[in-house]
């Protein structure tokens, strides 16, 4: 982009006045709080579009990315975690640990750039970046989403796998499993039917809590792959100093995280009937 300066001083001044940007920051902030309480997230100072509408248009894009990322992480993490737990102390387990630590240590943008280099530049089998909505062209959409969701999923898988391994190990130590084993139940059935289900609770928690990390990852991933989602909106509003958009985004993002945490709590009671939400056995 060749930068040329085009705005004239009067025009700029008028715009700032119209948007209330010439008021002190504190006044602007309280104006904003006031509007938020009345359910109005305001408008962008950049292009005047409604903050709420923009955010709600972006969220589904990021949710698709989140969904695919979680699926990928689960597909990798759960079997890998089970194998590592069952074969504890073997070569499988050690290399699993190392790979998991490696996964955690790779910033998602690094994974992303490596994937682009491999699949788009070297092999030329995937489009390097961009976004098409699934309604418009589902197969193109999925093609474009493979690398972004992989780069998010791999990192998440590392954490989930470790959790799966340690919680399964814990469950396998429990008395009822030992009793069942002593009774001669086949080990595989035992692990799949009883132990895995019980260890899933902590895995769900981890996956749920990762939503925070995930949204952070989306900021970078969407930037690398030019996906016009929620994360990219935040980055753009920071660069454009679009504070209404940024404040609104952060508010909505916190709300999403809190919502997911509630969902995680609720899913406990499903996975472990002994836990009753709001019940007395705390």
């Amino acid at each position: 982009m060749i930068l040329g300066q085009e705005a004239s001083p009067e025009a700029l001044h008028n715009l700032r006045h119209k948007l209330g940007l010439d008021k002190p920051l504190s006044v602007q902030y309280f104006d904003w709080i006031n509007d938020v309480i009345r359910g109005d997230l305001g408008n962008s100072v950049r292009d005047n579009r409604s903050v709420a509408q923009t955010i709600f248009k972006k969220i589904p894009i990021t949710l698709e990315l989140a969904f695919l990322g979680i699926i990928i992480s689960i597909i990798i993490a759960i079997p890998a975690g089970i194998i590592a737990a069952v074969k504890k102390g073997t070569w499988f387990d050690y290399s699993g640990t190392l790979i998991a630590l490696g996964g955690v240590s790779m910033p998602s943008f690094w994974v992303g750039i490596m994937l682009v280099y491999l699949f788009a530049v070297k092999l030329d089998i995937l489009p390097p970046s961009g976004y098409v909505s699934p309604g418009e062209d589902l197969s193109e959409n999925l093609k474009l989403m493979i690398m972004p969701s992989l780069s998010l999923g791999i990192r998440m898988a590392a954490v989930t796998m470790r959790m799966m391994r340690s919680s399964l190990l814990e469950v396998l130590q429990k008395d009822y499993i030992r009793t069942a084993e002593a009774k001669g139940l086949p080990r595989l059935t035992l692990i799949i039917k009883h132990a895995v289900r019980n260890s899933l609770i902590s895995v769900v928690t981890v996956v749920g809590l990762q939503i925070t990390a995930f949204l952070g990852g989306a900021v970078i991933t969407e930037t690398i792959f030019a996906i016009p989602g929620f994360g990219r909106l935040i980055v753009q509003s920071i660069f454009n100093r679009d504070f209404p958009m940024l404040q609104g985004s952060i508010l909505i993002m916190s709300a999403m995280v809190i919502f997911v945490n509630i969902l995680v709590d609720l899913s406990y009671s499903y996975l472990d009937p002994r836990i009753k939400i709001g019940g007395g056995n705390v």
């Binding site: 925070t212 952070g216 970078i220 935040i234």
Partner: peptide
């Protein structure tokens, strides 16, 4: 503070 991704907070 912990409900927001570190990167988003750091950026803001």
């Amino acid at each position: 503070m912990m409900s927001l991704p570190s990167l988003v907070l750091a950026l803001a």
